Each structure stands twice: as structure tokens, then as C-alpha cells.
Amino acid sequence: RKEMTAACTPRRRIINLTSVLSLQEEINEQGHEVLREMLHNHSFVGCVNPQWALAQHQTKLYLLNTTKLSEELFYQILIYDFANFGVLRLSEPAPLFDLAMLALDSPESGWTEEDGPKEGLAEYIVEFLKKKAEMLADYFSLEIDEEGNLIGLPLLIDNYVPPLEGLPIFILRLATEVNWDEEKECFESLSKECAMFYSIRKQYISEESTLSGQQSEVPGSIPNSWKWTVEHIVYKALRSHILPPKHFTEDGNILQLANLPDLYKVFERC
């Protein structure tokens, strides 16, 4: 597991931080080997919608929660590849102030007048994250320049770009939802926020969305749709870069829909 690298990086740093090793061990302890084997050997059937997909393993048909699986995938990559990410360069710098204002204007932020003026909160978020810029760049390849612009994001899987519609809320939550006081809790909560931002979430995906850094293989055609990215990038990574937690067998994120021999018997009677 320590050699797990989802995106190509030129050289690998050895990380011996106790906090990170502890988080890696927790993933191992909570892992479910049968689910790992199923995901490793599954045959992708198709997307139901951005949140759900169908896959077959041996004779069984499964309904998989793409949102939760991708979130767990990105969390584990962030923990196992800690401080070893490439950088996704933004085509132009994104001012943190503008991103924070967009987030505060969104109902998702939960902002009320009692929280104070949005401009003041946005300025605080910019200054707060600028103070964390060195650590964010060093460990997470999340790059913020001296003017308070976001200029780079971590490359977690080759050819995958997170849904940038979720970027404003991500920046807001970096400042408000991460435990910045304790090292282990900081790395864990920061990785979880980043994983949620990178995950496939239906509120940020339309039929026209593209999450891939590449064009489709047909010359002159439109960019790959999110469905292509889910199948050929995300579920491909799920084959080798995730140890599913045991609770996925109990919380409805992986559901067995049918045993195909039983279905064949039904059709034979028709």
C-alpha cells in the first residue's frame, strides 16, 4: 500500500510523520478485503446518474454509490500519497476573496446577518489561508500566491479535474471546517474536505460537464463527458487505489441488486 500512486510524480518523498502513518493504519484496520476484491475485478455496466452506477462482479449485479466511493478513493490517495502530488495549474489565478464571496452568497454556506458582513468574512478567509499557504503547498500541492490567488490544485489521478463549480464552497470550508490546531486532526479533516471537493457530486455535474483533463479519443470531437470520466478514470482507479471500509457493506453505498443465475431462471419461465 505504501507504493500506491494514482498520479505520476517525478520522485517520491518518504513521509514518516506519526500522524500520517496513524491515518494510514486506520484505513488498513477499517478495510474490507472482500469489497476490495469485488472492486478490483468488477465489470463496469454503466452510470445511472452522477451519484449511482451499476457494476457486475462474477454472477452478481451491484449498485454502487459513485459519490461515496470516489470520496473515499480521493481521501485514501491523499493519505497514502501525502506530500507526493503533482499540481493542476489553473488556467488563470482565482482570487480567494472572490471565491469566498461566491460561497457566502450560496445558501449552502449557511451565512446569516449575525455572522457579520460577507466582505469582512471573505477578507478573513483570504488572510487565514495565506498564512497556511506554505503547508498547503508542501503537503497538498494546493498553491496560493502572495496576492491571495489560488493558482494550483493537487493532481490526485492523472487526467482528472475536480468539478470546479464546487471550488468556492471548498475554499470556505478549508477556513471553517478544518481542525487547524492538532496535526493528525488537521491532516485528516483537510484531506476529507479535499476528497469531498474532488468527489463526483450530482449538484455540480450536468450532462455537459467534463471532468477530464483530456479530449476524447476521436479527433475533432467534444470533450469527454462526465460519464466517460466516471467509467474510464474514476472506476479504473477504484480497481487498484481503494481499500473500501467495512461500513460500506452496511450503509447502502454498495448494494447487491441481483444474482444473475437467479434472473436467468426467471427469464426461462417467461
Rank of each mutant, 00 (worst) to 15 (best):
E113A: 09
I171F: 04
D138P: 01
G116Q: 08
E127F: 07
I233A: 10
P10M: 07
L35G: 04
N28C: 10
R11H: 08
G110S: 13
A83V: 01
E134Y: 06
V126S: 09
S19M: 03
M196K: 12
S43N: 14
F267V: 15
A237D: 02
C270K: 15
L243W: 13
A53L: 01
E33P: 13
Q30L: 13
N253D: 13
L129P: 01
K132V: 03
H241I: 05
P10Q: 07
Q76L: 01
T229C: 06
Q56Y: 10
T66P: 01
W226Q: 02
Y204H: 07
S106T: 11
L172N: 04
R239C: 02
I125F: 13
K192R: 14
K236T: 08
E143T: 08
S212Q: 15
P117E: 15
D262M: 06
T59G: 11
L255Q: 13
D158C: 14
I254G: 01
A55D: 01
E25C: 09
N149M: 14
V34A: 11
L102M: 10
L39S: 04
E193K: 04
H40V: 14
H57Q: 03
P107W: 09
E188S: 13
T176H: 10
I15H: 11
Y264I: 10
Y264M: 13
D115T: 09
M4I: 11
L238D: 00
N41D: 14
S199M: 02
Q214F: 08
V218F: 15
W111A: 05
S199G: 03
E92H: 08
F170Y: 04
N159T: 10
V20A: 05
E29G: 10
S191C: 10
I169A: 12
V87D: 08
H40D: 07
M38K: 03
S141C: 07
L90N: 03
V266R: 15
R173C: 03
Y62D: 00
R269Q: 08
P107T: 13
M196F: 08
L90P: 05
I242A: 03
G110A: 11
L142H: 01
K246V: 14
E92D: 11
G120T: 14
N179Y: 07
P93H: 08
R12T: 15
E217Q: 08
L96V: 13
S221G: 15
L190I: 12
G120E: 10
K246F: 14
D105N: 12
S221Q: 09
T67Y: 03
I254Q: 01
G166K: 02
N49Q: 05
V178G: 01
V48L: 08
S189V: 05
V48K: 02
F97A: 12
P95W: 06
F128A: 13
R13D: 06
Q56I: 15
R12M: 11
Q203M: 11
L88C: 08
N84Q: 05
I125P: 01
L153V: 11
I171Y: 00
P244T: 03
F248Q: 01
M4W: 12
G110H: 12
S19Y: 03
T5P: 06
C8T: 07
H32Y: 10
T66A: 02
A100Q: 00
Y160H: 02
E33R: 13
T5F: 04
E123F: 12
L99D: 00
C186T: 05
N41L: 12
L102T: 14
N84R: 02
D145P: 01
L129S: 02
E217V: 08
A122S: 14
F82T: 02
L190G: 02
S91K: 15
I242F: 09
F82S: 03
M38I: 13
Q51S: 07
K68P: 00
H232E: 05
I151V: 13
I233H: 06
L136C: 04
P219D: 12
K60H: 08
C186P: 03
L35S: 14
F187P: 02
G166W: 01
P168F: 04
R12D: 11
C270M: 12
R11Y: 10
E29W: 07
I79A: 04
Y139Q: 03
I125H: 12
E183A: 03
N28I: 13
L174G: 00
Q30N: 15
N253R: 06
S221H: 09
N65K: 02
Y139P: 00
K130C: 11
L102K: 13
L39H: 02
L190H: 00
E177I: 05
Y264S: 15
L63Y: 05
L54C: 15
V34Y: 11
L54E: 03
P223E: 15
S199V: 00
W52L: 14
I79H: 01
H232T: 05
Q58A: 15
I254H: 02
C194V: 13
A94G: 05
Q56L: 12
F85L: 15
A94R: 15
T210M: 07
D262R: 12
G110M: 14
Q30M: 09
L238Y: 02
V87W: 14
E119H: 08
P117F: 07
G148Y: 05
R1L: 15
E185T: 11
E37Q: 09
S191E: 01
R13H: 08
E25D: 14
V126R: 09
V126F: 05
V218S: 15
E177L: 05
P154W: 01
K131Y: 10
H57P: 01
P245W: 00
Q58L: 11
S206E: 13
Q76G: 00
S141M: 08
S22H: 06
I254C: 10
L54G: 01
A237C: 08
L243R: 13
V20K: 02
F170S: 00
D98A: 07
H32M: 08
K131Q: 13
Q256L: 12
R201V: 02
Y160G: 00
I125A: 07
K132F: 03
Q76Y: 00
Y264H: 15
E146H: 10
L61N: 05
E185A: 11
E3H: 07
V87S: 15
K132A: 03
L61H: 04
I79T: 04
W52M: 08
N224H: 15
A55R: 01
E231F: 01
I125N: 04
R13E: 06
H241K: 09
P261L: 06
E33F: 08
N224G: 14
C8E: 13
V161F: 13
I222C: 11
A7Y: 06
L88N: 11
W52V: 12
F267R: 15
Y160C: 00
K236V: 05
R89V: 14
T67G: 07
E71M: 06
Y204W: 10
F170G: 01
S199Q: 00
N253M: 13
S199K: 02
P162S: 02
H232I: 01
E134R: 06
S191H: 02
M101S: 09
E250L: 08
S22W: 10
A83S: 06
L104E: 02
L39P: 00
K265M: 08
T18K: 07
G152R: 04
P50D: 02
A122Q: 02
Y62F: 12
L155G: 06
L150N: 01
I157S: 02
E134L: 09
L17I: 07
H42S: 09
A53H: 00
L155H: 10
L21R: 08
I242G: 01
E72N: 05
E268V: 05
G148S: 08
F97H: 12
D158H: 12
P162I: 02
E143D: 09
